[in-house]
């Protein structure tokens, strides 16, 4: 088994994200945030967060996330987006609602505190009948003016998990860590002692993610992390004949990444939720960590199978056979 962690957010903090939510003239919304999508689904979860923060159907929100005309999100790396960007989105949604209340109060000669936004309906508390408007009417009135005062209803939000703290030069002290996620993994393997090949029969991995904003994407990340981790554990090497570098893989056919054929016969996924104080609804990132569980779990299962501890990665058939030979010769690997 293996019990691993993954920090979420850039090392030392100071890695903000910014978001803008614009109310379009027809009552729909555009969420602008510079969070690149590498396939992991940043716009998917940020749209979910925005829909909840605005209290509107998710179909009303378009996400635009790739252009330097958009607000800065430091990077899509370090498993930081799920922890940080939702705060920027929620802050932008709150700012937009504040502006809507102010504009609405101005139109109806009321106090902004008395303006109620119920999803796509806006009214002055205690005077609903006379004042109620749909968000589409609000959007149209603010955008086109006409009988109303025009206003640019654009919410802004920024957030970072604390100011940057450099390492102390002598002790390395750096107290700021955004959040930490936790994983646990268990592998069952079969080792062919004649060829040295390892077959992962069953693999289980659980991640404690604070709050799974989208459990489907969490599961897919655990799945993808398995492939990277299993490749690191068993097959992937840019220099299979190191210290010679003269033979190096030049095409995908010589660089052995796990494929469907190498996938375990049984894969068990688990999600655990311990809400994190720094996360929106407790959510924190974890994705990169899902590659951490497989290498130590697989290496330990190999020991269980053949009685040899292997501490060199990747554990190629050659490494296995050499370890078995050494064991037979009575020498500890």
């Amino acid at each position: 088994m293996a019990y691993v962690l993954h920090p979420t957010g850039n090392k030392g903090g100071g890695d903000p994200s910014h978001a803008v939510i614009q109310l379009k003239p027809d009552g729909t919304y555009v969420l602008l945030i510079g969070a690149m999508d590498l396939g992991q689904g940043a716009p998917t979860i940020l749209r979910q967060v925005a829909a909840d923060a605005l209290g509107v159907p998710i179909e009303k929100i378009l996400v635009s996330n790739y252009d330097n005309l958009l607000p800065l999100s430091v990077s899509t790396s370090g498993s930081r987006v799920t922890l940080i960007d939702p705060h920027a989105v929620v802050n932008a949604a709150e700012d937009l609602k504040r502006q809507i209340r102010e504009w609405f109060a101005q139109q109806h000669e009321a106090n902004p505190e008395d303006v109620e936004i119920e999803g796509e309906t806006v009214y002055v508390r205690g005077d609903r009948e006379r004042t109620v408007m749909t968000m589409e009417q609000v959007a149209m009135g603010a955008a086109w003016g006409g009988g109303y005062e025009p206003a640019s209803l654009i919410g802004r939000g920024a957030w970072q998990p604390g100011k940057y703290h450099a390492h102390d030069p002598e002790t390395g002290e750096m107290p700021n860590v955004g959040a930490i996620s936790f994983g646990a993994a268990l592998a069952e393997v079969e080792v062919d002692t004649e060829t040295g090949t390892v077959d992962v029969l069953r693999f289980a991995q659980v991640w404690e993610v604070g709050k799974a904003i989208n459990p489907l994407l969490v599961r897919q990340q655990i799945n993808g992390g398995y492939c990277i981790g299993a490749g690191f554990a068993l097959t992937e090497s840019c220099y299979p004949y190191f210290p010679s570098v003269e033979y190096a893989p030049e095409k995908m056919g010589d660089y052995f990444m796990p494929t469907f054929e190498d996938y375990p016969q049984q894969m068990i996924f688990g999600i655990e939720e311990v809400p994190h104080p720094n996360g929106v609804q407790g959510a924190k990132g974890f994705s990169e960590g899902s590659a951490s569980g497989p290498p130590p779990a697989i290496a330990s299962a190999i020991h269980d199978a053949i009685g040899v501890w292997i501490t060199e990665f990747p554990i190629t058939p050659e490494v296995i056979l050499r370890a078995l030979e050494a064991k037979q010769a009575g020498v500890e690997s």
Binding site: T44, Q48, V49, V63, K211, I213, N214, P215, L216, A283
Partner: peptide, 9 residues
């Protein structure tokens, strides 16, 4: 929406 398994946007 937060907490729902939704397909990729």
């Amino acid at each position: 929406y937060v907490g729902q398994a939704m397909p990729r946007y």
